[in-house]
């Protein structure tokens, strides 16, 4: 077995934690818990970034870590909590697929992602290249979570988790995106979040519910 330095082992462990949290989010139906899970995922991401920054001496990664901490661990969860309280959406209704089937599909997705990542990882030369597969898996799992939920709130959380995965993927493949892009993405997420918050209130005023199937009635009648 190849000997891996301890720091990288820690990064790997963080990666595994991210994946574990993705699965936990996939099976969780309480929206409040989802937010906590998202915040934990952000914290793990922050930790992984710090570790990589420490190991590779890439200073801009420290800034990314700080950004992650401020935005994904503190501000967004706080915002989401406020939204949940004000909108009174503590539970998502029964998801479209039952939990076991969702998890099984999740497993298939992980196999797919890992298989996909092996050739990519072979090309990449970064220290954390073996975690690319996990990053892809996190993105796809978050995507699947968005598909299987009915409530707008859980979909937003899925969206944020997907962004986490994307960020982690970029980090493992190329030590993060250029700073400008990263800041841009962070700003995008922030704005998207705020807009969605406003949007939620609008939806609720219109339909008295955040259940997204009401949006289906918006299509044009033949």
């Amino acid at each position: 077995m190849v000997h891996v330095p301890l720091l990288l082992q820690l990064v790997n462990t963080c990666a595994a934690g991210l994946l574990l949290l993705s699965f936990a989010m996939l099976s969780q139906r309480r929206v409040v818990t989802l937010v906590y899970l998202l915040a934990t995922q952000g914290a793990l991401l922050c930790l992984a970034t710090l570790l990589l920054a420490w190991r590779t001496h890439q200073h801009h990664l420290y800034i990314s870590a700080a950004l992650t901490l401020g935005l994904k661990v503190m501000f967004l969860p706080w915002l989401l909590h406020r939204l949940i309280r004000r909108l009174d959406v503590y539970w998502d209704t029964e998801p479209l697929l039952n939990t076991s089937v969702t998890m099984l599909l999740g497993l298939v997705i992980v196999v797919f992602a890992f298989g996909l990542a092996q050739p990519i990882a072979a090309l990449s030369s970064t220290a954390a290249r073996s975690t690319i597969g996990i990053a892809i898996a996190v993105i796809l799992l978050a995507f699947m979570m968005m598909i299987t939920r009915r409530k707008a709130m859980s979909q937003v959380i899925g969206f944020l988790s997907m962004e986490n995965g994307l960020f982690f993927g970029a980090m493992s493949a190329t030590y993060g995106m250029p700073m400008v892009v990263e800041l841009g993405v962070a700003l995008d997420v922030l704005v998207a979040m705020l807009v969605l918050g406003v949007f939620f209130f609008q939806i609720r005023e219109q339909f008295d519910s955040l259940d997204l199937h009401h949006l289906e009635s918006l299509k044009e009648k033949p």
């Binding site: 077995m1 790997n12 990666a15 992980v110 890992f114 990542a117 073996s130 597969g133 996990i134």
Partner: peptide, 13 residues
């Protein structure tokens, strides 16, 4: 448990 197996194969650890 199966995920653990896959992660082991991916990360080699």
């Amino acid at each position: 448990a199966v995920l653990g197996l896959l992660v082991h194969l991916l990360l080699g650890a």
